[in-house]
């Protein structure tokens, strides 16, 4: 059975949603506390959303140094799948497992609403259940979601097709504001060069059960359940 570790920091608040979404696809999901220094043999690591360590200093800045993140780094560097959602994405950037940074939303307000995104990479462990260029409606809920990076890094991300999710262009018909935070190149999620480490601002775990009204996020979890079955 697939072992999925959901890492909990003080201030994580999407941990149960992530665990439930993993369990829905038949995985053995369990929590790992931030002070633990190993992941108990996890096949997949989920860094859930929330406000780890109260977002002190910068979102994700303190979580980066927790014991569990040293284990997370080893897992990632060995090619193990890691998905950082929202605060998890911020932590992955602070830990330099992903490039760039997430800054205060351009509009300064906390944004909590559904957005439309395009899946540009359908070959990562978390997006293989989707078709390339498939359009999803997923909730976002963040104050620091504006992805920024140097021009060189942005060029590299685009040239290497490492944008996993992108907010739909303003020209496309969508009832929702195209880019909720002013991120560079309308980026909503990226991956590392190997594709095993993925960070996204939208919350697929909040849209993984039809009972909740949105089901488009379920593919993130069915993807790894298929891709990494031993």
């Amino acid at each position: 059975m697939l072992d999925v570790a959901v890492v909990r920091f003080p201030g994580s608040n999407c941990d149960f949603d992530a665990l439930r979404a993993a369990e829905r696809v038949g995985a053995n999901g369990y929590f790992v506390w931030h002070r633990e220094n190993h992941l108990r043999g996890a096949d997949v690591v989920l860094l859930p959303g929330g406000f780890s360590y109260g977002d002190y200093l910068r979102s994700g800045a303190i979580a980066r140094f927790s014991p569990v993140m040293q284990a997370g780094r080893r897992h990632a560097e060995a090619g193990g799948p890691v998905l950082g959602i929202c605060n998890g994405f911020q932590i992955l950037c602070e830990a330099h497992l992903l490039p760039g940074a997430l800054m205060r939303n351009a509009g300064l307000t906390f944004v909590s609403k559904p957005v439309d995104v395009i899946v540009e990479r359908a070959d990562t462990p978390f997006t293989s259940a989707y078709e390339a260029n498939e359009r999803l409606r997923l909730p976002v809920a963040h104050g620091d979601g504006r992805f920024v990076a140097t021009d060189d890094t942005l060029r590299e991300l685009e040239a290497e097709s490492r944008v996993v999710l992108r907010y739909v262009a303003a020209s496309e018909a969508s009832p929702y504001q195209p880019n909720p935070n002013g991120s560079a190149n309308h980026i909503a999620g990226i991956c590392n060069p190997a594709g095993n480490v993925v960070g996204i601002m939208p919350h697929p775990e909040r849209a993984a059960d039809p009972l909740l009204g949105l089901g488009d996020g379920a593919g993130f979890f069915t993807s790894f359940s298929k891709a990494t079955v031993r």
Binding site: L57, R58, A61, F65, C93, E94, P99, G100, A101, M103, V148, A149, T150
Partner: peptide, 8 residues
């Protein structure tokens, strides 16, 4: 290492 983010 911590107090500032070298990217931003």
């Amino acid at each position: 290492k911590l107090l500032a983010n070298p990217v931003t």
